[in-house]
Structure formats: C-alpha cells, structure tokens
Amino acid sequence: MRGEHTMRQSGEITGYRRDHESQPPYLHPAYESTRLRAPDRPLVILPHTLSEVTGPAFGHGKVGPLDNDLTCQHDGEPLGERIIVTGRVLDGDGRPVRSSLIEVWQANAAGRYTHHADRHPAPLDPNFSGAGRCLTDGEGRYRFVTVKPGAYPWKNHDNAWRPAHIHFSLFGPAFATRLVTQMYFPGDPLFDQDSIFQSVSDPKAREQMISRFDLDTTEPEWALGYNFDIVLRGREATPMENHK
C-alpha cells in the first residue's frame, strides 16, 4: 500500500474521465440562484495531477453505529412514512467504492428542514433532525433508515415546489470524484416544473437521480424500501502524460 502510494506520488498519473454530458451546467436561468453565482469566464482545463487523484479518507472514527438511522436520534420516533434507502456506490467502471463516506440530509415528512433559515410554515418534528452518515461496506453498499421527506415550496418562481428529495454528499477515492447530488422518488408529479431536477438536460441522466421502489428491500410490517445506486467518475484507461 505504502509502496504503491510512493510510486503514485512520484510517477505517472491516471486521470479521471470528464463527464460533462451527464452533468448540469453552471448557468441554468430557470434556476434563479444560478444567475449571479454561475461563473461567466471560461473554466480553465486542469489536467489531473496528484492533487486531484488523491483525496481525503474518513475512517470509522467519524461515523457512529447509529448515524445511518435518522429515526432513532431522539427519544421518540419521527412522524411520517418510514423508509429504507439502500444501494451501492460504484465507480465509472462498475467497481464498488469501498469504505467511502456518505452524508445525507433532508426535510421531515411535512417538508420542513430543522435549519433556521427554513421558513416554510409546516411543523417541525421534535423527533427528526434529518441528518445522517455512513461508510460504504466492502461491496460499496450503504443503508439508511429514515422517513420519506415531504415536498416543500420555494421562491424560485410563482408556486414553485421542490419534489421530495434526499441530499447525498459523497467523496469517492479522490478529490476529482467528489459529488453532491439529490435522490428523488419515483413518479413524483413535481419533476416537470422543478428547475433543479430539470437542469440535467439528458433524460437518461435524470433517471440516474431517481430511486427505485424495491420490494426486496421493503421489510414486512415495517418500512418501504428504495434502491439508489450512485455512480462516480471512472478512471482514464491508461496513464496519461498531462503536459508535453
């Protein structure tokens, strides 16, 4: 391990594939907040170096055994529809991403975040904070127990509502593989008018953000199961020389 690392620190770099087609743009005028925050000068292409192909590692010390169960962080159980969200984190070549940190956050069943800036007049739930985390296992698998988040209004445009979603933050093996995304639920009637969901122009790529109801994950008399696999960027096929 150490030997391989030393070699990597001094030798050739295998970069990560760029994945622009599946990603949203910075400027998406329908999503109002992008208008003053999207850069307007062209991005500078950064050939991958050691700084991009290495990345932080988070051990079990950062994650408690119950951090992946958002329904047992308080004295009582939260209100709402109890669900299990599970899946695998894979790299762009279909290989599992192991021991990798996932952080999640979401609104409660009524569509309200505990966050002080959330002014939606829906009830807070004293038994739900809506934040969790876990590490993927040896097969890249993760599992959260939570309640299904509610839809909520926002001020992007007149009568704008966000589809129900859970925020996911992932690191993967390198600085280059960092990903923050949102998991949606199948058949949500709010997809068509949501400028954040629609910022991804490729319908197939949008499908990648929608979880799948899964009867095998569903536990009888207890909770519905949803499956959500996440694919991070894959490596270039061969080491590339970045600079001539």
Partner: peptide, 9 residues
C-alpha cells in the same frame, strides 16, 4: 460503462 450520477446543488 455506467453513466455517472449527475450533480445537484
């Protein structure tokens, strides 16, 4: 090759 999951804000 699986497609990467899109980023969201």
């Amino acid at each position: 090759t699986p497609e990467p999951t899109p980023s969201q804000t």
